[in-house]
């Protein structure tokens, strides 16, 4: 019976969890790995978690923690970006998304998590702080640092939508 309840909950939540994991990791396959680990942990703890007032928030926190933990333990894994193709005309929206996603993936993991939670998931500062287990002041400073980093990385993308030749992207995983 508990399994049925768990599966019903998880099936409904997987799309949102994949979206959040993809925003954090920038990689669809790694996003699935993060969600897989999160829902496995959730199964182990389901009997305690199911009665919580806000299961969604708890599971989101598990996912973000799993992401940050994977970064800490996986710094030796390196994802090098490749030079974006030079385009004469403004790129289609999908290319812009890819470019922004690649840029976001270069922002340090904790700053990236703050940007994703605040600007892509509309969480207020207080909830972001609770989810990350830090102070509101830390969230604010991480937001400022994260935006600065993102702006610097995006600076290679000029107003015409073309990418400078030889501009090489890389990111840490």
């Amino acid at each position: 019976m508990a399994d049925e309840e768990y599966l019903t909950y998880v099936r409904a939540r997987v799309p949102a969890l994949r979206r959040l994991a993809h925003q954090l990791s920038g990689d669809p396959h790694e996003a699935d790995d993060l969600v897989q680990e999160t829902v496995t942990k959730l199964y182990v703890r389901w009997s305690r978690i199911r009665s919580l007032e806000s299961v969604d928030a708890y599971v989101n926190r598990m996912l973000v923690r799993t992401f940050l933990d994977s970064r800490r333990r996986g710094w030796w894994k390196v994802l090098l970006g490749t030079p974006p193709d030079r385009v004469a005309a403004p790129p289609p929206a999908v290319e812009e998304r890819d470019y922004v996603r690649t840029a976001l993936a270069q922002v340090p993991p904790r700053q990236r998590a703050v940007l994703v939670l605040r600007y892509l998931n509309d969480l207020p500062v207080a909830e972001t702080a609770a989810l990350l287990g830090c102070s509101e002041g830390t969230v604010k400073s991480q937001t400022a640092h994260g935006l600065t980093a993102l702006r610097r990385i995006l600076a290679g993308h000029d107003d015409n939508g073309s990418y400078p030749a030889g501009h090489e992207l890389g990111r840490a995983r």
Binding site: V14, Q36, E96, V100
Partner: peptide, 21 residues
């Protein structure tokens, strides 16, 4: 620019609930 990243991954889900259980 960040808010363009609100969609799910374009790839089919690789999350395996049987394996999670």
């Amino acid at each position: 620019l960040l808010t363009t990243l609100t969609h799910e991954p374009g790839t089919p889900s690789g999350v395996d609930l049987d394996r999670a259980v």
